[in-house]
C-alpha cells in the first residue's frame, strides 16, 4: 500500500519504537546489557579477586564456593571470566570502531565519486582480500609485536576494507534513487548529499555487519590471545583463559569451557541485536 493515513501522533513514537522490537532483539539487548554491566563493574560483581591465588583450592571443580571452579593456581574461574568481560567487550568495540569509521568514510566517498578513486580502491581491496584475514592480521601483529594495541591496529588495517566495500555498494545503490539527483539539482554540496542524504539511507547494512563484526572481533581477539599474540597473561581474557586451560582439558574441563560459553553467548547477543537493529532502521512504508 502506498498511502497510509497519518493516524499516530509523534508523541507515541517512542512507544512504537518498543512495540516494533522483535523478541529476539530484546533477548539480544538483554545479553549485551548484562555483558556491558559485567564489563564496567567487574570488581562489584566478581566474587573473588581474579588474580588471588588460593592454594587450598587448586583445580577444584565447580562447587558452591567456586561456581565455575578454579585453576591450577587456585584462581576463581568465574571471577576471571567476569573480569575478562572488560577486556573482551573493549576488544569488540576498539577492534572494530576504527574500521567502521574509516571504511564508511572511504566507502561513501568512493561510491559517490567513483572514477579514478574507484580504481585505486579496487586495487586496495584486491590486494587485501586475496590473503586470508587471520593470516594478514597475524602478519601485521608479527611486525608490530604482540599486545592489545597492536592487535587493534592490525585488525583495523585489514578490516576497514570490508566496511568500505559494503558502504560503497550501498551508496551506489542509493545513488540510483532520484533523491540523490534531486539533491544535486537543488545545488546542495557533495558533503551534504553524501552525509545528510545518502548515508542515513545506506548505513543499515553496515550497522548490521558491525554487530556481527564485533562478535567476530571477540573471537579473533580470543584466538590471538590463545596464540599469545593478543592480550598477554596474566591478564584475564577469554582466549588467554582457554589457552591456559588447554593442558588440563581432560582433568579440569571447566577452565576452557566456561570462557568458551561466555564467547558464544556474547556473540549470540551481538547477532540478535544486529538483526533487530536492521529491522528498526528499515524505513517504513
Amino acid at each position: 500500500m502506498t498511502y497510509a493515513p497519518y493516524a499516530q501522533k509523534r508523541r507515541f513514537a517512542v512507544f512504537k519504537f518498543f512495540q516494533r522490537m522483535q523478541p529476539g532483539f530484546i533477548v539480544g539487548l538483554t545479553i549485551l546489557s548484562l555483558s556491558l554491566i559485567l564489563a564496567l563493574f567487574p570488581s562489584y560483581i566478581a566474587p573473588y579477586d581474579p588474580n588471588a591465588f588460593d592454594f587450598n583450592a587448586v583445580q577444584s571443580p565447580p562447587s558452591d564456593l567456586h561456581w565455575f571452579g578454579t585453576d591450577s593456581l587456585g584462581r576463581d574461574t568465574l571471577s576471571r571470566v567476569i573480569w575478562a568481560y572488560s577486556v573482551n567487550m573493549q576488544m569488540a568495540f576498539l577492534a572494530t570502531i576504527f574500521s567502521l569509521l574509516i571504511g564508511v568514510t572511504i566507502g561513501a566517498l568512493v561510491g559517490y565519486y567513483r572514477g579514478f578513486s574507484d580504481v585505486v580502491f579496487g586495487r586496495c581491496v584486491d590486494a587485501i582480500i586475496t590473503f586470508p584475514f587471520l593470516v594478514l592480521v597475524i602478519a601485521v601483529v608479527a611486525v608490530l609485536g604482540p599486545g592489545l594495541i597492536n592487535m587493534y591496529i592490525a585488525i583495523t588495517v585489514v578490516g576497514w576494507v570490508y566496511y568500505a566495500r559494503l558502504m560503497r555498494a550501498e551508496i551506489m545503490a542509493q545513488m540510483a534513487n532520484d533523491y540523490a539527483s534531486a539533491g544535486k539539482v537543488m545545488g546542495y554540496s557533495d558533503s551534504r548529499i553524501i552525509f545528510r542524504h545518502l548515508l542515513p539511507n545506506a548505513i543499515t547494512p553496515v550497522i548490521v555487519y558491525w554487530m556481527t563484526d564485533m562478535a567476530l572481533a571477540i573471537l579473533l581477539g580470543s584466538s590471538l590471545g590463545y596464540l599469545g599474540l593478543g592480550a598477554q597473561p596474566p591478564e584475564a581474557e577469554w582466549g588467554v583463559l582457554i589457552a591456559e586451560g588447554r593442558n588440563f582439558i581432560t582433568t579440569a574441563w571447566w577452565l576452557s569451557l566456561m570462557p568458551g560459553i561466555a564467547i558464544v553467548i556474547t556473540g549470540f547477543g551481538f547477532s540478535l541485536v544486529g538483526d533487530g537493529v536492521a529491522d528498526l532502521l528499515r524505513p517504513r512504508g
Binding site: D178, Y179, S181, A182, P283
Partner: peptide, 13 residues
C-alpha cells in the same frame, strides 16, 4: 528539475 518516479525522488527519512 522534477523527476519521474514519485517514490524515489524524495529522501525517505
Amino acid at each position: 528539475m522534477m523527476f519521474q518516479d514519485p517514490y524515489s525522488s524524495l529522501n525517505p527519512r
